[in-house]
Design a binder for these strands. Structure first.
Lengths: 221, 221
DNA sequence: CGGCATCCATTTTGATACTG
DNA sequence: CAGTATCAAAATGGATGCCG
């Protein structure tokens, strides 16, 4: 372990820290908020407990992740990104944008799916210009998971958990999100076709559906 | 081989394609233009010929890399990025920017260094606003390697090889580039202190040195 | 639940020798 | 120079057992 490329290069140095298998997916999970050990086990099938523990320890040692104790009443240990870890977001989102355009297509047999991934996908497609002058809070409920998005000053933040005081609430299920990820529908169309229920401030909803630039999928060649 | 995360997620799908060891560094090399098999061997120490061949074959099969024949008089085989491969640039550059801020510091004992990496670093730090309205071509000569940069419409392209008709030429050596990468000097300071020789259009040179926003290195915590 | 330790089968990698 | 072939070392995946 701790193999290094031994290159004085910013890309190589970064990959020395986060380039090993599973590491960037752990970061991806943390981009929507702190996670417990078992949260990772649920969303990262194939990653054994031993390797997960080793990866978390490595990220902690390297100052990308901090071990925390969840506030009462949970009081259970969890992991959160440090500032350095949080700032990996642009890189992870760039990988996600590339994947949306060049690598998504249909869901393959046996592929796992979690709502949080789609929420991060929305963030990756966020278009600051479309959100100019808007300040709004949205809540997404999807199959007993809840996320929220805070839009402000042309920025978006997407996190696990309920919103404080949402301007609008969107309720839907995994199937719709999968269809969106596969490019078969859009947020606007899903609402129009009653596959997603939207309530709250109509203005905030209109702004929401125009806020994302979803890349047109392409074949690689 | 061809292990997959088995997740219907854009980030995971991308990492299925380019997340294995060495793969993104191969892409990094190709971001400054086509490379021959031996070019990779020279810049990627530790990557054996067998694994290199396997990685290139994989990238070719997946439509990220295309095998080409270099134009006369070379006529030797080489590898170039496809459109899909080229569009990995934002992700690689995002990783590089993170590394400049959070992972660079001093050059460590035994770390390799190549001018091309610094040139890519410049591209990663390029600030479109600073280059607004500028159209210029620069040539960089550093220890028997030559690169050029084309600046146009707030975009930059940095490639291996001489410029067609450079507006300015900057000549320097690895040591200066290492100092720049370590944050110990800047392009402007290096020219001022005669550690880099700049010739050509003074206007183009003034614009050049103001064109990059080099991140302030931070300690992770 | 949270997490570490251990054992083992399988993959991946690194290094080198070899060939057209 | 452009790769193949080969083999040893390391990383991973999966299971299981343990302990607070």
């Amino acid at each position: 372990m701790d193999r290094t490329y031994n290159q004085f290069c910013a890309t190589a140095r970064t990959l020395d820290l986060v380039g090993e298998r599973w590491t960037l997916l752990i970061v991806r999970e943390l981009l929507t908020g702190p996670k417990r050990f078992s949260d990772f086990q649920n969303s990262l099938r194939g990653l054994g407990t031993g390797l997960l523990a080793a990866r978390l320890k490595h990220l902690e040692r390297e100052g990308l992740v901090r071990k925390i104790t969840l506030p009462a009443p949970a009081r259970t240990p969890a992991y959160a990104l440090t500032q350095a870890g949080t700032e990996l977001a642009p890189a992870v989102l760039a990988l996600a944008r590339w994947g949306m355009k060049w690598a998504m297509g249909e869901r393959r047999e046996g592929e796992a799916f979690h709502g949080g991934w789609a929420v991060l996908g929305l963030r990756a497609c966020f278009d600051p210009e479309s959100a100019e002058g808007l300040r709004a809070m949205y809540e997404f409920r999807v199959s007993d998971e809840v996320f929220h998005a805070i839009v402000e000053n042309g920025t978006i933040e997407t996190m696990h958990g309920p919103a404080q005081r949402p301007d609008a609430v969107i309720e839907t299920d995994d199937e719709v999100l999968v269809d969106m990820a596969a490019g078969r529908t859009t947020l606007a169309a899903a609402i129009r076709e009653h596959r997603a229920q939207a309530t709250g401030d109509p203005d905030a909803l209109v702004r929401l559906v125009g806020m994302f630039r979803i890349p047109q999928p392409q074949a690689r060649k």
